[in-house]
Amino acid sequence: MRNVFVLIAVFVCMMIQVPILTLLGLTTFSVDAPLVAMLYIASTGPGVVGMVIVSLMGLLTDLFMPGGLPGMQMEILVVLFLLARMVVSRLQLNRTLPLIIVVFLSSLVSLGLFMLLSVIFDRGYQHSSTVVTGGLAQALLTALLSPLLFKLFGVADGRFHHRRDTRSLFV
């Protein structure tokens, strides 16, 4: 149950992302909040429940991604979760720089998996350099905003346990 609030936070992030970016005039950008949430869950609860929550989050992302194949983000997030839980225990994700690097690398792996699964399952998919550049732009923006999102998920998680997240954001 502890990650349900993180799931809700991701849901809210996805719902308000487009209207807020439109309000700010940044319609050409997008942030992969579920990826950051997946890393948060992998670092705080890398068990079965965490994996199921990540899977549900992927399904939710698929519903918010018109044009894509249902199950695509679900698969990508679960595979990344399995990879992440092997390495995050050795990294200090409460520090800004390692977090940004891990998120950026995860985004790149996510992009690679997206292209691979599209080639296999999506009959309408055609390779385009704009997919790569769009994916790289999203990876960069997601990595830069990941400390804030990590903090947000920490707050959401902490509220549920009636405790405050004391981890420093920029140390």
């Binding site: 487009v18 319609t27 997008s30 918010f64 991604m65 018109p66 894509g68 997919v131 732009a137």
Partner: peptide, 10 residues
């Protein structure tokens, strides 16, 4: 809903 991801223009 306008573009929400970098992959498709849908």
């Amino acid at each position: 809903l306008r573009d929400v991801n970098p992959f498709f223009r849908v």
